[in-house]
């Protein structure tokens, strides 16, 4: 039984499912919703690297998401630039902005960092909202082109966009997976657990924090740029604090600081929200208390709780196996075991 829920087995199955999903449903609306949740996932992964692994709760991510979206929108609509060039440029713009803000923001800690980034996010939102001559203000940007052709492949249909976003998402997950399982990832976790201790054992905390902050804003910008090219209309509302809270909800329900959390949380919440369409503006009546209750009772979210449960079971199994061994084997081997332990 345990082998079936094995990582090696479940990952290809999930990818396969994502690939055949459009053919199974044949429903354009479902494909639309799924593509959107993939786009959100990328942003949530960015937030997860920073808040989940490094322990810095950034509340500016909607701002960076909007910067990515607006950079792409402005470069393609107003500057008439080639789509992919604009795409790359908007990622660079977001990352550079992230770098500059991170340089200052990361000097602050804990509450100050949260408040600081909250204010940065609000400034970004206000600038987008008020700078009429550049961003069109509350009217929003209309007519953002769909992703341009790559060679013979065009991305005009929802189906092709679905696969494009899926491909980018898989790359993002791979990058995050590699980071988390490397020494760099361990370093981030060390910073989360105790920054002073990390500093003492010779980790350059500032450099690492800056790295993860830039990476995190890069993912936020990527997700924003994809959003702009997918929805093809953007307004200042995408930079609102509410979006940051949405991302945070996805992350927490899925499991903060876990690899599969962003996927689980985003898919679950986005689909539940679709089912609860009639609630629309009132969805927070349900998600607000869920968020609070989760933090109190299941601070590790769904993925984290399952992982914890599995670990506990494995531990029990191991203990039991050792006990059995002790009963069946001769006293000498038991003695050896004690020595080894």
């Amino acid at each position: 039984m345990a082998n079936i829920i094995n990582k090696r087995f479940i990952i290809p199955v999930l990818i396969l499912f994502a690939i055949v999903f459009p053919f199974v449903t044949q429903n354009d609306y479902f494909i639309h919703v799924m593509t959107l949740s993939f786009i959100w996932m990328i942003g949530v992964y960015g937030l997860n690297l920073l808040a989940g692994y490094t322990g810095y709760l950034s509340l500016a991510h909607a701002g960076f998401f909007a910067v990515g979206a607006y950079s792409l929108g402005l470069l393609t609509v107003k500057a008439q630039m080639n789509f992919w060039l604009a795409f790359v440029l908007s990622l660079i713009i977001t990352s550079v902005l992230g770098f500059l803000i991170g340089l200052i923001a990361l000097r602050t800690k804990e509450h100050f960092f949260a408040i600081y980034t909250l204010c940065v996010g609000y400034i970004l939102y206000l600038i987008i909202d008020k700078w009429d001559s550049l961003t069109e203000g509350v009217r929003g940007l209309i007519g953002i082109p769909a992703p341009g052709n790559i060679g013979p492949i065009s991305f005009e249909t929802p189906l092709s966009q679905y696969y494009l976003v899926l491909a980018i998402l898989l790359v993002v997950i791979l990058i995050v997976y590699r980071i988390v399982h490397s020494l760099t990832g361990r370093t981030y976790i060390a910073i989360r657990n105790s920054e002073d201790l990390a500093l003492t054992i010779g980790i350059s905390t500032m450099k690492n924090k800056l790295e993860v902050f830039v990476l995190s804003t890069f993912f936020a910008g990527l997700s924003g740029a994809l959003y702009a090219s997918f929805i093809r209309f953007i307004g200042p509302d995408i930079g609102n604090i509410v979006i940051t809270f949405d991302l945070l909800t996805y992350l927490l329900i899925g499991g903060i600081g876990t690899l599969s959390g962003p996927i689980v949380g985003t898919v679950l919440v986005v689909w539940i929200s679709q089912q609860l369409q009639f609630l629309q503006d009132y969805r927070m009546l349900i998600f607000g208390p869920i968020l609070t209750l989760l933090v109190i009772f299941y601070p590790r979210g769904i993925a984290g709780s399952i992982a914890g449960w599995n670990a506990k079971r494995a531990e029990k199994k191991l203990a039991k196996a050792q006990q059995d061994e002790r009963f069946s084997q001769s006293p000498i081997s038991a003695e050896n075991q004690v020595k080894e332990g």
């Binding site: 808040a51 509450h111 949260a114 998600f287 607000g288 609070t292 933090v295 109190i296 601070p299």
Partner: peptide, 28 residues
């Protein structure tokens, strides 16, 4: 009160949850 021993990030998120709830409540 239940979160008094939790890491600081949890208080903030819980507070945000209450904020979202009360705002939706008022709107409702």
């Amino acid at each position: 009160y239940p979160l008094r021993h939790a890491p600081p990030i949890h208080d903030k998120i819980a507070a945000i949850g209450i904020l979202l709830f009360l705002e939706a409540f008022a709107q409702y």
